[in-house]
């Protein structure tokens, strides 16, 4: 069975925009951790998923991201992702997650797209 190997940190980047820093694996085993992180940013206008330290994502993890996206949409929150490797960027395209989760190269461009500004 998949081991729990995810560390998550939630931080407010600018007012109204929260970043979830993901370090490790996203698999069904980490559902509670991921959803708990989401609950910490339920009042954010936009959520940025930082995948720079993502080690591994399996198909069950894609299912978790779908659930996260649905919850964000229900609260009318934007969901952005950045820091994905080329491989996982392709997986987002293959599963068509990129239809609903905007993908960016880095936090600055994700923030800009989310209507936030580090200096603003």
């Amino acid at each position: 069975m998949t081991e729990d190997t995810l560390q998550i940190a939630v931080r407010e980047s600018v007012p109204g925009v929260t970043v979830i820093d993901i370090h490790g694996d996203i698999t069904p085993a980490v559902e509670e951790q991921l959803m708990s992180a989401y609950r910490d940013c339920e009042h954010a206008r936009a959520i940025l998923l930082n995948f720079e330290a993502l080690d591994y994502l399996n198909s069950g993890g894609i299912g978790l991201l779908v659930t996260l996206l649905v919850r964000a949409q229900r609260h009318q929150q934007q969901l952005h992702a950045y820091g994905l490797s080329d491989h996982y960027r392709q997986i987002f395209e293959l599963t068509r997650l990129d239809d609903a989760i905007a993908i960016h190269d880095d936090e600055v461009s994700a923030l800009s797209a989310a209507g936030g500004d580090r200096h603003g």
Binding site: V66, T95, R96, L97, D99
Partner: peptide
């Protein structure tokens, strides 16, 4: 085309 959970019409079920 491929059609993931975001591309369908109806309620989303797990």
């Amino acid at each position: 085309r491929l059609s993931g959970p975001l591309q369908g019409f109806g309620k989303l079920w797990q």
